[in-house]
């Protein structure tokens, strides 16, 4: 069994499974919230957790294309939209946690943070950049924009992911071990794209 092709029914099942798995982090937070299991500083816990899963889903989404090219599993691309939307979903939760739970609509502090705190200066636009991608994720929007334009627009995810990793790197006090892992995975995923692009252009020249 090579998983090179799967039928529509299996793909639908797979989508349901991925959808449920992607909600596990949220369910754990909700369960923890109702059972006093989020520790002494629940707001910090929720902020860190939703941020962690935003970045994780961004990287999983970015892994689809290189993995598809390496494995030949073309159907993987049909999971990509859902994975990307989950990155946006956790990004929204992360931002709302900051806005409501952490700052409680203290607009003055928020503005100062965006202007003065480098990790927020870079994290905020990284989140904003995901909004046009989510809005243009429907089939109708892909048709309206045309494949070429749509692909160009959706390259913004590279900036969003880089901004997200830098945001994490700049906010930790001293222990960089987690940000380093995210940065290494992101570098690998972007590096593979460059490699594929280079091989492609070389082959084209050879022809």
């Amino acid at each position: 069994m090579t998983f090179k092709y799967i039928d529509n029914k299996s793909l639908s099942c797979l989508k349901v499974v991925v959808f449920i798995l992607a909600l596990v982090p949220l369910c754990r937070l909700i369960y923890g919230g109702f059972n006093d299991a989020l520790g002494a500083n629940p707001i910090e816990k929720i902020t860190h957790n939703t941020g962690y899963w935003t970045l994780t889903f961004l990287l999983i989404t970015l892994a689809v294309t290189p993995f598809r090219q390496l494995s030949g599993w073309q159907w993987l691309v049909r999971l990509r939209r859902m994975l990307g939307l989950f990155a946006f979903f956790y990004g929204c939760l992360h931002f709302l946690t900051y806005l409501v739970l952490d700052q409680f609509f203290d607009w003055e502090s928020i503005l100062k943070d965006i202007l003065k705190r480098p990790y927020i200066t870079v994290g905020f636009p990284a989140f904003l950049l995901m909004i046009p991608l989510a809005l243009t994720s429907t089939d109708a929007m892909i048709r309206r924009l045309g494949g070429k334009q749509w692909r160009l627009l959706h390259r913004l995810i590279y900036l969003s992911a880089i901004g997200g990793v830098v945001h994490y790197w700049w906010l930790v006090k001293k222990d960089l071990s987690n940000p380093i892992i995210f940065a290494a995975v992101l570098a690998l995923l972007l590096g593979l794209r460059l490699l594929f692009w280079w091989i492609q252009t070389r082959n084209r020249k050879a022809v």
Binding site: A40, N41, I43, E44, L101, F104, D106, S109, K112, D113, K116, R117, P118, Y119, W170, L171
Partner: peptide
Amino acid sequence: VDHPRWSQAKERRIGEFLK
């Protein structure tokens, strides 16, 4: 006097919601 990367003007008292 802020920490170079974050503000020190407010704090969250453990167990409280508003800073």
